[in-house]
Design a protein around this nucleic acid. Sequence first.
RNA 1: UCCAGAGUAGCUCAAUGGUAGAGCACGCGGCUGUUAACCGUGUGGUUGUAGGUUCGAGUCCUACCUCUGGAGCCA
Length: 453
Amino acid sequence: MRTLIKHVLVSTEPKESLTVNGWVRTRRDSKGFSFLELNDGSCLANLQIVVDAATPGYDRITEFTTGASAAITGRLVASPAQGQKWELHATQLELIGIADATYPLQKKGHTPEFMRSIGHLRPRSNLYGAIFRLRSKLAFAVHEFFQSRDFVYVHTPIITASDCEGAGEMFRVTTLKGKPDDQPESDFFGKKTFLTVSGQLEGETFACALSNIYTFGPTFRAENSNTARHAAEFWMIEPEMAFCDLRGDMDLAEEFIKSLAKYALEHCAEDMAFFAKFVDKGLNERLKFVIERPFIRVPYTEAVEILLKSGKKFEYPVSYGQNLQSEHERFLTEEHFKSPTTVFNYPREIKPFYMRVNDDGKTVTAMDVLVPGIGEVIGGAQREERPDVLMQQMAFHKLNPADYSWYADLRKYGTVPHAGFGLGFERLLMFVSGVSNIRDVIPFARTPGNAEF
RNA sequence: UCCAGAGUAGCUCAAUGGUAGAGCACGCGGCUGUUAACCGUGUGGUUGUAGGUUCGAGUCCUACCUCUGGAGCCA
């Protein structure tokens, strides 16, 4: 009967006999005995195993190299040396799978670039093990957050015919050979279809029935983006609330980010301490600040004024009516406010048609949540619920209303004010862990020119 | 896609236009409690690819490929 190392390490008393399975991280030989460090991925720490030369199986001790897999039975005793509370004195050694000298992971730090080239082996390292345990825990926390607030989890389609306008380039889905655009009517679905860039429009239909919903699933963007915070395939969380305005939307976004940061510190303490030590020295301070302090909320117009008055030289000039550049967003969140910052009420021209037009007629109820180090982590809005204004917005953005008839129906029949947002799960993981490249927080990153593994 | 930088041993990096090196990994030997163990010793190279300049190119030039950082697009 196997015991996971995470459970072994928190033992409260010695054990006569237990068995652990895992992969050897390192071996240190002395005369007459050896130390093995075994890791099974259940936690960051290794279990130190002391193997006396008389132990059955010791004749093959030199084959217990870094990367080899093993099953080891022994007595759990308090360790007499510094560095660990418990150690296992082996009584039985079994080598399951050898790892020869070509095993690429060494007992030393590797660059993230090298680790990406061995994506199938990198989860066996300290850093990537920690990242993917955190990812799992936070995915669970997302569900817990929404479920405990009576949000209904909706599986919006992956394959879709609707283009969530403004969200980006789409991957085409087709079974046709040659040029599928020439004959979309004979394609599998009888029309042009794509991988979803957002579940929002479909999510709105469910919010306008079940009140509060959320989606959490893969999302695809065919943009030729080569940055540390973009991937062609990523996971997005999109809550949508009926009978809710922009203020309620901003409240939820803020509460959500705080809740996940708090969850990570409470439920992933060992891995978070590792990030704070080796990835981002200021991590704990930053997360504490985020959890305890209210986010700054600033209207777009005011943000522009702050930027103009800052006296700071920007590469791209600031002017009303233009989208905020990365350098502008960074200045606001990293230098001016030094806090997560929600910018809201953007000019109508630069935001999608579905956002609600404000009384000034010039701005829409958009909001972006910016966080230090990452930039935009959430984009959301109160949706336009007035049928006539929605039609005007489609005309304003030169869209064909026939393509959005079902969407317009939500306003035709029992329309309600509603609002929601999209949060990039990987960007949140980057923020919470301090890991600076999106390729390192997703198991197998899909980026332009790269779909290995 | 644009701008900048970088590709040398399995990994991380050195090398004025003049004999390609170190640390780690790995092999062998030593060490009675180690902690990325330590000490000694050995193996290890088509210098990203293709051209060019030169008596001579890792080093200079051209093109391409890949990666990194920044920008745009956005989550």
